[in-house]
Amino acid sequence: TEKQERAIEYIRRLGYSEEEARRILKKANGNPDLAKEIARRIG
């Protein structure tokens, strides 16, 4: 989804690889607090 793409872009800007960014997002899917934090940061 567009939100996922924005989140991946944001995480990659922090210096993670695409693969790492996707792994972090997968974790965020099972972790509402982390997901909220990422969403808050990407606006």
Rank of each mutant, 00 (worst) to 15 (best):
R41L: 11
I8H: 03
G30T: 03
D33R: 11
L14P: 00
G15K: 01
A21W: 01
E20T: 08
R22S: 05
Q4S: 09
E18L: 13
R12G: 03
E20N: 06
P32H: 05
R6S: 13
R13G: 15
D33W: 10
L25G: 00
I38T: 04
E37D: 09
Y16I: 06
G15T: 00
E5K: 14
E18D: 11
Y10C: 06
L34I: 10
I38W: 05
I24S: 00
K36E: 07
K27I: 15
I38L: 11
K3L: 15
E2Y: 05
Y16V: 03
S17W: 02
E20S: 07
I38P: 01
E20A: 11
L14W: 05
T1R: 13
R6W: 09
E37W: 10
N31L: 06
R23N: 12
R13H: 13
E37P: 01
L14D: 00
E5G: 07
E37I: 13
A7N: 02
I42R: 12
A7I: 10
K27D: 09
E18I: 10
A39R: 02
E19Y: 14
R6D: 14
R23E: 13
I38G: 01
I38R: 05
R13V: 06
Y16H: 05
Q4L: 14
I11V: 02
L14S: 02
P32M: 06
R13S: 15
K27T: 12
G43R: 15
A21P: 00
G15C: 05
R23T: 11
E19H: 10
A28G: 03
Y16C: 05
G43T: 15
E5Q: 13
I24N: 00
G43Y: 15
E18M: 09
K26C: 09
K26N: 10
I8G: 01
I24Y: 04
A28S: 05
Q4K: 08
R23P: 00
K26E: 11
Y10M: 06
A21T: 05
N29F: 10
Q4M: 13
Y16W: 08
I38D: 03
R12S: 05
R6Y: 08
L14M: 12
A21S: 05
A39G: 03
A7M: 06
R22K: 08
A28N: 02
R13I: 07
R41F: 07
N31R: 06
E18A: 09
T1E: 11
L14K: 03
L34Q: 06
Y10T: 05
R13P: 00
R22V: 07
R41C: 14
R23S: 12
K27F: 15
I11K: 00
R40K: 11
E2W: 04
E9W: 08
R41V: 09
Q4I: 15
R41Q: 13
A39Y: 02
Y16S: 01
R22W: 14
Y16M: 06
G43F: 15
A7P: 02
E9V: 07
P32E: 07
N29E: 08
I38Y: 06
N31D: 15
E18Q: 08
R40P: 02
Q4R: 11
E18N: 07
R22L: 09
R12K: 14
L34S: 04
R22A: 06
E2F: 04
K36R: 11
E37R: 15
K26G: 07
L34Y: 07
E5A: 12
D33Q: 11
D33V: 10
I11L: 11
P32S: 08
D33M: 08
L14G: 01
R13W: 13
R12D: 00
S17P: 04
K27N: 10
E19Q: 12
N29Q: 11
G30N: 09
A21N: 00
G30V: 02
E37C: 11
Q4Y: 09
K3P: 13
A21D: 00
E2N: 11
Y10Q: 06
E9K: 09
I8C: 05
K3D: 15
A7K: 02
I42A: 14
D33P: 03
I42D: 12
I42P: 10
I42M: 15
I42N: 13
E20W: 09
S17V: 02
E5L: 14
L34H: 06
R40W: 07
G30D: 07
L34G: 03
A35C: 06
K26D: 10
A39P: 01
I38H: 04
Q4P: 05
A7T: 10
A35K: 02
K27E: 13
E19N: 09
I38A: 04
R22Y: 13
R22C: 09
A7F: 06
A39D: 01
I8W: 06
